[in-house]
Write a protein that binds this DNA or RNA. Structure first.
Lengths: 137, 137
DNA sequence: GTATCTGCAAAACATTTGCAATTCT
DNA sequence: AGAATTGCAAATGTTTTGCAGATAC
């Protein structure tokens, strides 16, 4: 995705495409999902030496409000941020702590059980032991 | 569940049944799921005036380590604690913020997609608008 | 020229840690 | 007495807030 395309995308979602916002969005695309404010900061501080974490927080909040970003919290530590691209779940290994994405193809999880409720977001979060760590045991 | 039963239950899980631990467990049973440290504290401080939040944190950590409690974090604020009774998901209303439980009867969420991974815990967290808030709109 | 955006510094808040006092056996 | 538990106070780490300076239209 080029800078021009990001600019158009942000405009289309009523987000003014400032330099910082474009860079944060670019970072989320290039670095993949479940980034933290800290990891975004570390990634961008070389390019934007004056960048503050407050701006990252502000930007992510705006992205969330405009529904182009999902915010999740897997373990009670830092918040993690996912661009809304495809619907996927998260698996975190209890040993190496790494987070893996996996597709959710089952569109309804007994949603009819919750009668009259409007469901707008779904998060599926699994914990266990990943293949590599299992083999090391 | 009587105090005697809780005592036996904790003993059976290799947890020494101190007064505070019994009271915290009792609170989790009586007040239902997704309680926070703060809400447990407010509930118990009348009964145990010397109670500290550190003890609640300690106790919940022990319960978690001994697999009688699940810890979840829905919104990045406080952690929430669920006794492991039946498997259920959580639905949080974006308007009134209330959290509802719902049963998960579908045992596998495309788990075969994650080949060779050992899945030990599953959390399903939905967000949307609850019936009451929908009707008020 | 006015409104918006940025970013520093301080505040807020949940959780963890160190350690001394207490309790239990 | 000895070991485990409790709880106060301080530290930690993430996120939020207030506000002044910078930027954009």
């Amino acid at each position: 995705m080029t800078v021009t395309e990001i600019t158009e995308f942000l405009n289309a979602h009523d987000i003014k495409p400032s330099y910082q916002r474009i860079k944060v969005y670019e970072c989320l695309i290039n670095q993949g999902n479940h980034m933290t404010v800290e990891s975004i900061y570390r990634e961008l501080i070389a390019t934007i030496p004056t960048l503050s974490k407050t701006t990252i927080y502000n930007t992510l909040k705006i992205f969330e409000d405009h529904h182009i970003l999902n915010v999740i919290n897997l373990n009670g530590n830092e918040m993690r941020y996912d661009l809304i691209l495809d619907e996927h779940g998260h698996f975190q290994c209890k040993i190496c702590q790494e987070i893996f994405d996996f597709p959710i193809q089952e569109p309804r999880i007994q949603i009819e059980q919750i009668n009259g409720f409007k469901i707008e977001e779904r998060n599926v979060f699994l914990k266990g032991i990943c293949k590599d760590c299992l083999e090391k045991q």
